[in-house]
Design a protein around this nucleic acid. Structure first.
Lengths: 268, 268
DNA sequence: TGTTCTTACATGTCATGACAAGCGCGGGCG
DNA sequence: CGCCCGCGCTTGTCATGACATGTAAGAACA
């Protein structure tokens, strides 16, 4: 019976080995502000990413995890459910929980800004501010932000660079109150999402994306350093705070050859 | 399994503690094979979609839902969690659970075939089979499906029509064993996903998408009825079964003007 | 030998109970 | 009058227990 259960005890072997289970993860819990299930999730994720649990392998069963981490089943299940939502694992009733292939794709279904996403991958980015002014909302902007046509909005236009080459033109529209504050920030250096969340304390919730293809006109071609008629991936992104208030409507024009948008979708 | 609303209307009659809805949902539960939380989810979703719970409104609290449906909190919370995952609701600790705007966007984060998605929206679709043969896998196909270069795969090429206009060219690659079976099916009439799931009993799990933009070459232009150089939205889709076995690698070429890809992404 | 049954173990569903933490409001205090 | 604190309500986290259901493999049987 040389089977996988045997490695369950080794799960918690990261400690020096002299500590009994009750001083394992549990000891630092009192110190940590993070929920238990979140800490367990982090531990499991790290072990998946570093190869302790290779692709296709079976994770320890829920009861094994309960014993290992000394928590109840509901806590283990919440950790596993979150991992599954991240696309790292999947479960089959009666068999177990398994590791999916640890590719690069995951976590791109998350709402994150350009700089945020690229920095995490070790790319060098910066933005050049090519326009920032107050304008009247056109039809699309007004509808997206829930305003009337002609109402004041702030338009911020930036060219995003990746490794010194331009990859996208971002045109963002904000309601006047937020937009005017943004006009005074250092938009070239800081991620707008960072400002919104940390300085303004907005609770970014989700965003609706619409993706289609177009070709570069003269102006786009100039900004992005491509020929007129080159393929352009256009994304409309409407970001919501507190669930339903639209805060940020953007057009993102990516050069077709320099960028690919990746995501994972689930069945059911 | 047809009716359900007739006897469970008391949710919104509200929480003043008036009438005990004892014969509500609970009576038919014994009959139904669906889990309780799933049935509750369906009821709530329908009420959100039909306007019983309008956008921005607050859903009954968890304890109110417990009383209404006569279930425990864990069951209510699972229903609410699923609704949130679908993008229909969001929660704020200490305040409540609220309805997001019931737009058209939702459920497009799900993995579904073209016909599946369009039929649900009431569009008329059909596919014209433009090619189906066994070929040797090229580098990209081999890598995607986890095969060696030159190994036999089955290539199926179809032009998808929406309301009688061509909107996309789909080129799909399957491992030889599955592909050969597919060659004998009526691929013009049936959705491939339908065949894979129902006839072949594959457990479709998730798919990785890569989206970028290109322009139509002569062949694409001919198939899709657009001019050469027209913008094309190109999607690579790799579908997995049982979590990690790649089963279906496709290139989807959508005309830039006839189709938009929509999805919702969440923060965290 | 081949088939069915039993059994162990896995995840899925659901109940009950408890406490923590965030929000909003009204009453009390300065 | 205005600020703050307590209180009730909400969702968030976690424990314990039970039974249902799917899977796999060995035991029992034909």
């Amino acid at each position: 019976m040389s089977e996988r259960q045997a490695d369950a005890p080794s799960v918690r072997s990261d400690d020096a080995g002299d500590t009994p289970p009750d001083h394992g993860l549990r000891a630092e819990v009192a110190m940590s502000p993070l929920p238990l299930y979140s800490q367990i999730k982090d531990v499991l994720r790290e072990r998946i990413l570093d190869g302790t649990y290779p692709a296709h392998s079976k994770l320890p069963s829920e009861s094994a995890l309960m014993a290992t981490f000394e928590v109840s089943r509901i806590t283990v299940r919440q950790a596993l459910r979150d991992l599954q939502k991240e696309g790292l694992t999947f479960s089959i009733q009666g068999k177990g929980t398994f590791v999916t292939k640890p590719k690069a794709v995951q976590e791109l279904t998350r709402l994150q800004g350009f700089g945020e996403a690229m920095a995490r991958k070790g790319y060098e980015t910066y933005s050049k501010l090519t326009g920032a002014r107050e304008v009247g909302a056109d039809r699309d902007v007004a509808r997206a932000l829930g305003l009337s046509r002609g109402e004041a909005v702030v338009e911020i236009e930036r060219v995003r660079h990746l490794n010194r080459s331009p990859v996208s033109l971002d045109v963002s529209y904000f309601p006047a109150d937020v937009g005017r504050r943004l006009l005074q920030e250092d938009l070239a250096a800081r991620d707008i999402f960072d400002i919104l969340e940390n300085d303004y304390a907005f609770r970014l919730q989700a965003a609706d994306l619409t993706i289609d293809a177009t070709v570069a006109d003269r102006r786009l071609a100039g900004h992005l350093g491509v020929a007129e008629g080159s393929p352009i991936l256009r994304i409309e992104r409407l970001t919501y705070v507190d669930g339903s208030r639209p805060l940020d409507f953007e057009y993102l024009y990516y050069t077709g050859d320099a960028y690919q948008y990746r995501l994972r979708v689930e069945r059911n």
